[in-house]
Design a protein around this nucleic acid. Sequence first.
DNA 1: TTAAAAATGCAACAAATGTTGCACTTATTT
DNA 2: AAATAAGTGCAACATTTGTTGCATTTTTAA
Lengths: 185, 185
Amino acid sequence: MTHTSNNPSAIRSQEWLMEALLFLLEEKPYHKISIKEIAEKADLDRSTFYRHFNSKQALLERYLDSLAQEYLRRLEAGENMDMGKVAKIFIAFWIEHIDFIRVIRKNDLDGLLLKAFNKHLPSIHRLTKDKFSYSMNEEYMEFALAFNAGGMWNILMKWVDSDFAHSYDDLLKAFEEISRFNFFR
Amino acid sequence: MTHTSNNPSAIRSQEWLMEALLFLLEEKPYHKISIKEIAEKADLDRSTFYRHFNSKQALLERYLDSLAQEYLRRLEAGENMDMGKVAKIFIAFWIEHIDFIRVIRKNDLDGLLLKAFNKHLPSIHRLTKDKFSYSMNEEYMEFALAFNAGGMWNILMKWVDSDFAHSYDDLLKAFEEISRFNFFR
DNA sequence: TTAAAAATGCAACAAATGTTGCACTTATTT
DNA sequence: AAATAAGTGCAACATTTGTTGCATTTTTAA
């Protein structure tokens, strides 16, 4: 089991392992990256890997979670958030991590990424709670928020699959067009 | 590489392997199911597995694709399709496969499932093409369709995560509520 | 500064993975 | 019916995986 630790050695090792995985992901498919290889790239013994993570996926999930947290910090930094601003930050964030999301999608790992981000949906809800012009039953708001998040996500994936054929402005325009029929603005 | 074959032996083997995987998925987590085990359950040699599939994931994807095709057949069977009917068929379909989708979600394999279904998005678009009351640029319709599909999907996932705490009617009502703010009806 | 706690490297292990050559059986073609 | 093609089982192989005990180093606490 992975225990949270403050020990400098432990933190350093975990960071090295994450960096090693990210480096290797640029070179070869996820499923061909062995734990042996990750440990070697991180200059650590293989057993040390297993003392921190149960699996390659657990290591990746740690990084995905840190990404989601960074995204949330971006949202929290904004003022007077509405869904339009959320969309802007969302798009800008992923343009910034364009290489990573390409690799994630190519290796069919986007489900894990969405899961990591969905974990923070309640926080996002809280941030934007008072900015909507809903006339919707509160009970269905949860569903609506999930619908919206999933929709934005799938568009992001579509954008990745097109090999980023659209600009920041294209994507933003698309969100605006959709939002005219949707509950966010 | 997996070559498509009509040979009865080959088809039979592939079916046995798929059935074996589905059976084992009910018993233990995906990542703990070994290929050795799948082959044994299917009464086949391990080498036969590799002659048909490159990996456990390739085997699963074959089944996911067959599921997506079945779903598409359901849609095609309907007449005068609009998005409300699509939602009904969507919900009914997954209630029918409730055990499978639970297992898929629990093992973080829903990304693969969405991918299999997204592959058929163009066909769904074609089915419902003339039934919308759009006032939307055709260029953005692709985005809107992707948004809609991703949204419905994320609600499905939310439903699974709640351990199916909502009924067919609850889900349908949620879609209707959302659609009042959305481009489909 | 010293003692206790935590993390690491090394080595060994059983098990699973991915691949291949060969003999044999099943299916298709002529 | 015979010849060709395709699929299977068996066996062997190098490699990776996941796990653990023990000695050594690094970090924390007294």
